[in-house]
């Protein structure tokens, strides 16, 4: 399972990425996740990601990110504001879970 996080510069998502990874480890699921800024999505998207998650603070760019994801045939979801904290690993995991193959 590979999840690509998208925020403004890839900085804040890194914190949330760690929360998700920790929860996945707890559940015994192999999870790869990385954070990038919106300008890098287009270059990054073809690198084998299974899911794209867009941070709440760049939700005004959600449509443009989704368009890129759609073109690559990868599901794209917005992260709820409440799930975007270091403590929200479990809620975030719930959101990601259904995409685990």
């Amino acid at each position: 399972m590979k999840v690509l996080f998208v925020c403004a510069g890839g900085m804040s998502s890194a914190i949330v990425v760690n929360a998700l990874k920790k929860e996945a480890e707890k559940q015994g699921v192999a999870m790869e996740a990385e954070a990038v800024g919106t300008p890098s999505v287009e270059d990054e998207i073809r690198n084998g990601w299974n899911l794209v998650l867009v941070a709440p603070q760049v939700r005004h760019r959600f449509d443009s990110v989704k368009a890129i994801a759609d073109e690559a045939g990868i599901p794209c979801e917005a992260i709820a504001p409440r799930s975007y904290t270091p403590m929200a690993g479990p809620t975030l995991y719930q959101q990601v879970k259904e995409y685990i193959k």
Binding site: I15, Y84, T85
Partner: peptide, 12 residues
């Protein structure tokens, strides 16, 4: 970096 407190407290 303050997204954790902005979305966590939350301030939003």
């Amino acid at each position: 970096i303050n997204e954790p407190v902005i979305f966590g407290a939350p301030i939003v």
